[in-house]
Structure formats: C-alpha cells, structure tokens
Amino acid sequence: MTETPGTSPDVVTDSIRLLAERGWDATTVDQLAQAAGISRATFFRKYGSKEDIVFADHAANLERLERLLDRPGADPAVALREGVLLVFRHHVDHRERTLARHALLRQVPQLRDRELITSHRYERVFRRWLRTALPDSPARDTLATALSAAAVAVHNAYLRGWLRAPGTDPSAELAAQTERLARTLVAGFDDAAPPAGAPAAAPPRPAVVVTVLDPGAGTEEIVASVREALA
C-alpha cells in the first residue's frame, strides 16, 4: 500500500472515515471490503480486522522510524528530534486520515487501548535505540527510559494541539523542543554523575547517639568513656 502525501485517499483512510460516519458497530468488514472494491478474504489478508485497519499505517511508519534511527555515530539529541518529527509529520501529511481516526476514537472507547499500545510501540523503538546511541554509563538505561517516554509525551501533546487546530503546523517548534529536552536530560544526568576517574564516594558513617546519665560529667570524661566503650 503506497502512502504518499497528496495522493487520492487510500483504503485505510476510506475505511476509517466510513467507520466514523456509519458507526463502529453498524459497519461490517463486508461493507468495508465492498467500499474498497476488494473481496472480504483480500481485505482480511491485507488489512486484518476492523481494529487492525484503523492503525494499519503505523506498522510501516515504525519501520521508517527504525531505519531513520539506524545511523551509527549520530548525535542522540538530533536523531531523537528527527525521529519525533518523522512520526508527527506522518500524522500531519495524512491529514484526512488522522482527523477521521481522531473522530472515530472519540466515538469508540475500546480503540483507545489500541492507541495506547501503538504509542508504547513508538516508545519502545526510541528506548531500544537510545540504549545503544547514548554514551556508556551506569545511568544509560535510566536515561534511555526517561528520554523515550518524554519524547513520546511531548509528541502526543503537540499532536493533540494540532488536532484542535489542524490548520496550523507546529513541526518546527516540536523539533526544537524535542532537541532541547534531550540535551537538558542528557546534561542533567552527566552533571549528576561523578567525573571519570574520580574516587568513589565514601560510604556514609553510622549515626551514634550518646546518652549521658551523669549531668556533672565533663566533655573529657564523656569522650574517654565513649573511647573505652568502643575499645
């Protein structure tokens, strides 16, 4: 299935729009196949169930994201920015499909769980890549988890804003904010880590509470008693 911005609506877009207009429960796979001009068996083979076709384009987009990130030596902040922008542009460049899907999800609560699963798949791709792209350090896994979750959260916030005002294009702002976020988090973890070659911090000393039962005892007598007890 070719997904080129600006071409005529495809089967995925038409099916999502049909489901939104006629209603989820009222629309059958047979009707979707008929509208697409294909057999029921072909529809199932190419697109799966009704739920599958609503998110069918994301499988290909996840593959594009993985190819984009698979660049040895790339600056993690820059690559993360480009990855988030790729995902966002996929929604914006397929405007009618994204708006139809948003309308459908508002009608069908059960699809929102699938939307969350799809969002987590993007997060896993970012996290898996960051675990190899970030500099090796004890905090790398933690930083990869934090960065991937934050990047997807920022993307989703901008997407929600665009859905409310689809005539706008916040791509440039999203890209800048994502890179700034990445550099801030990486720098924060670097600042928290001890410099390379620095001696390990000494373990904290145990707290000792001394109770003086003789109110007339002097300091030297107290210290001598403590030393004697420790000896």
Rank of each mutant, 00 (worst) to 15 (best):
D141S: 13
D190Q: 15
L159Q: 14
L159P: 06
A187E: 11
D141H: 15
D169W: 05
D214F: 06
A151G: 13
R183H: 05
A139K: 07
V210Q: 08
R180Y: 06
L159K: 12
G167N: 05
A139N: 07
V208F: 00
G161N: 08
A224R: 15
A217H: 01
T145L: 10
T184Q: 02
S225K: 02
T184V: 11
E179I: 06
P194D: 09
R164L: 09
H155P: 07
I222R: 04
A217W: 13
G188D: 14
T219M: 03
R160D: 14
A144L: 02
V210Y: 00
R183K: 10
W162I: 11
Y158L: 02
S171K: 01
A207Y: 06
R180Q: 14
A196M: 05
A229E: 09
Y158G: 01
A157E: 03
A172T: 15
P203D: 13
A149T: 15
G188R: 10
D191M: 11
T184P: 03
E221H: 12
G218D: 15
T178M: 05
A200N: 08
A175M: 00
T145A: 15
R140G: 10
A202G: 08
G216H: 11
A193M: 06
T211P: 01
E179G: 03
V212E: 11
V152L: 15
A165L: 02
D191I: 05
A193Y: 02
V186L: 12
V209I: 14
G218M: 02
A151N: 05
A157Q: 15
G216P: 00
L159S: 01
L213I: 02
P166S: 08
A193Q: 10
T142Q: 02
P166W: 04
P206F: 01
P195N: 03
A200W: 00
A192C: 11
L185R: 04
L185Y: 13
A193C: 04
A176T: 14
A187T: 10
T184H: 03
Y158M: 05
G161M: 06
A200G: 09
S171V: 03
A224I: 01
V226G: 06
D214P: 03
R205E: 04
S148F: 06
N156V: 04
A157T: 04
V154C: 11
A165M: 00
L213D: 07
G216Q: 12
L174T: 10
G188Y: 07
R140E: 02
P170N: 07
A182T: 04
A139S: 12
A200Q: 08
L185C: 10
Q177M: 12
H155E: 15
T168F: 00
S171G: 08
E179T: 10
P203F: 02
S225E: 14
V208P: 00
A172I: 01
P195V: 11
T184S: 05
S148H: 06
L143D: 02
A198I: 05
G188P: 03
S225L: 12
A150I: 06
L159A: 09
T178C: 12
D191K: 08
P166M: 11
A150M: 11
R164A: 11
P194R: 15
P166G: 01
L159Y: 03
V208N: 00
A192V: 00
S225T: 14
A202W: 01
G216V: 01
R205Y: 01
A146Q: 15
L185Q: 12
R227V: 06
V152M: 13
T168D: 13
R164M: 10
P204K: 09
A217L: 05
R227D: 09
S171A: 15
A175Y: 07
D190H: 14
A200D: 11
